[in-house]
Amino acid sequence: MSTPTRPRWTAFVGNMANYIDAAALISWSTVLVIYQQTRSFTPAEIGFGNGTLTGAVAIGALVGGWLADRLGRRPIFIATMALILLGTLGMIFADTLPLVLIATALAGLGIGADLPVATSTIAEAAPSSASRGRFVGLTGLFWLVGALIAGVGGGVVGNLGEVGALILLAHIGVATAFTLIARLTISESADWLAARAERRSGTRTSRAARASIRDLVRAPHRVPFLGLLGFVIFGVAPGLAILGHYGVYMLVN
């Protein structure tokens, strides 16, 4: 298996995307609560904001991996970072609910689409199967750190009004800009390039084969897929959807 010349750097940049995703999801809900105080957003409007973010993340996650398989990891990774950065800047300057929802949708699409692309980039950067486990395992750590920093930061600056919202959004913007620039220094995945060459030449390999959703419920993928599905539904989703999106709102109100 061919690998990039700087696998650790590639893994770090890919995991920075997970940091940004978690920080953005937590910070967004805090910013919406701040806007309740500074821009007179109603509870229903905050619900629209969080719902738009959740829906956009779901749509992005559905199409991100599909696009990355067809167009390459690098262009989609860059596009997702650009969407998050654009949505963050829009959130800073948006002064009406429709503009806030547009900015939220852009950021959510980038966050959702980035999840499968970043994981693929990290896994394909590993020089061996053993290091692949370590590289991918770090995604959870980066995600946790991003969520903790955003949560603690929200508690520290939440009472500063618009200034607090600006600090939270600026944190996401700076981290996203850094990751976007860093991603430009990394070439396309060697595995993806090899798979594309094999498909074009008609060579039949597992790497070049087109996978389907049905493959996930067949051996040998069935058990790990169902385990992961259960973990997301009963572990990640309640914490992220309820506490992440509405925890700050419940504490404040």
Rank of each mutant, 00 (worst) to 15 (best):
L148A: 14
L160M: 14
L138P: 05
V156H: 12
G151T: 05
G158R: 01
V156D: 08
A150Q: 10
V156Q: 03
V152W: 11
R134P: 00
V156T: 11
F142W: 15
G133M: 00
F142Q: 02
G153W: 12
G151H: 03
I167K: 05
A170V: 13
L160I: 04
V152P: 03
A130P: 00
S128F: 00
T139H: 14
A130K: 06
G151C: 01
S131D: 12
N159T: 13
F135E: 06
G154C: 02
W143T: 12
V136W: 08
N159Y: 11
L168W: 13
L138S: 08
L138I: 12
V163W: 05
N159F: 12
S131H: 12
S131P: 00
G140Q: 08
R132Q: 07
A130T: 11
S128W: 01
V145L: 15
L169W: 13
G140F: 14
G154V: 03
W143N: 13
V157P: 06
G137K: 06
L160W: 15
S128V: 11
G161E: 01
F142P: 10
L148G: 13
S128K: 00
G155F: 14
F142L: 05
V156N: 07
G146Y: 09
L144Q: 13
L166V: 10
L168N: 09
G154H: 00
I167H: 07
R132F: 05
G155Y: 09
G137E: 05
T139C: 09
G133R: 03
V152M: 12
L144A: 15
N159Q: 10
G161I: 08
G161F: 11
G140D: 05
A150I: 13
G155L: 11
L166I: 10
A130N: 00
E162P: 08
L169K: 09
S128I: 06
S131K: 10
